[in-house]
């Protein structure tokens, strides 16, 4: 399916990049192999301006109101939210585990930081994911180059600032290569 290119409308404030929203959901009993992952992930729309973002976002369910095993992904247009994508294959992600009840607020803040280009790491950011699970929720931010420590440190420090994380929050960095090896996202 060919999609119409996304562009800002008259009078709108353009974003540095266009972003695409994806949604996925699976039953925990089903194995998370690559094929079922790709089949489960649904493209839900793209935005090119601040105004398009709000229009789109305000119609979405807040992640804290989702149930079961589901994920929202927002990635730069052209990057699939998969380890195998060219932009992700040498990359990794910061993982922040959140107790139940915090996901919606942290999700909105991490999106605003990404759309507003607050991370200052050039082209490195690929996208963000919120993962709703049974015991806890998980926020991740993916970048292109896992072994670039200047970049990953700057992303971590920016996250601490923009999310105003509680002092006891544990942040872990995981390369997608390691996720592939142990067949586990977190």
């Amino acid at each position: 399916i060919r999609r119409k290119p996304t562009s800002p409308g008259a009078g709108e404030h353009p974003l540095q990049y266009n972003y695409t929203f994806w949604y996925s959901r699976r039953t925990p009993s089903r194995p998370a192999n690559t094929q079922s992952y790709e089949q489960n992930i649904k493209h839900i729309g793209s935005v090119a301006s601040v105004e398009q973002f709000w229009k789109f976002y305000s119609h979405l369910v807040r992640p804290g109101d989702l149930t079961g095993h589901s994920d929202f992904h927002i990635f730069k247009e052209g990057i699939k939210p998969m380890w195998e994508d060219e932009a992700n294959k040498n990359g990794g992600k910061w993982i922040i585990r959140l107790r139940k009840g915090l996901a919606s607020r942290f999700w909105e803040n991490i999106i605003l930081a990404m759309l507003g280009e607050q991370f200052m790491v050039g082209e490195e950011i690929c996208g963000v994911v919120v993962s709703i699970r049974f015991q806890e929720d998980i926020l991740s931010i993916w970048n292109k180059t896992a072994n670039d420590q200047v970049t990953t440190s700057r992303i971590r420090d920016t996250l601490r600032r923009v999310l105003n994380l509680p002092p006891n929050t544990i942040m872990e960095y995981k390369t997608h290569n390691d996720s592939l090896k142990d067949n586990s996202s977190f």
């Binding site: 105004e51 607050q118 923009v162």
Partner: peptide, 21 residues
């Protein structure tokens, strides 16, 4: 090139713009 940077307040202020409805 120039980067388009928006702070959180700027983005939140656009939320209720007629263009965002």
């Amino acid at each position: 090139g120039t980067r388009i940077i928006y702070d959180r307040k700027f983005l939140l202020d656009r939320r209720n713009s007629p263009l965002a409805q």
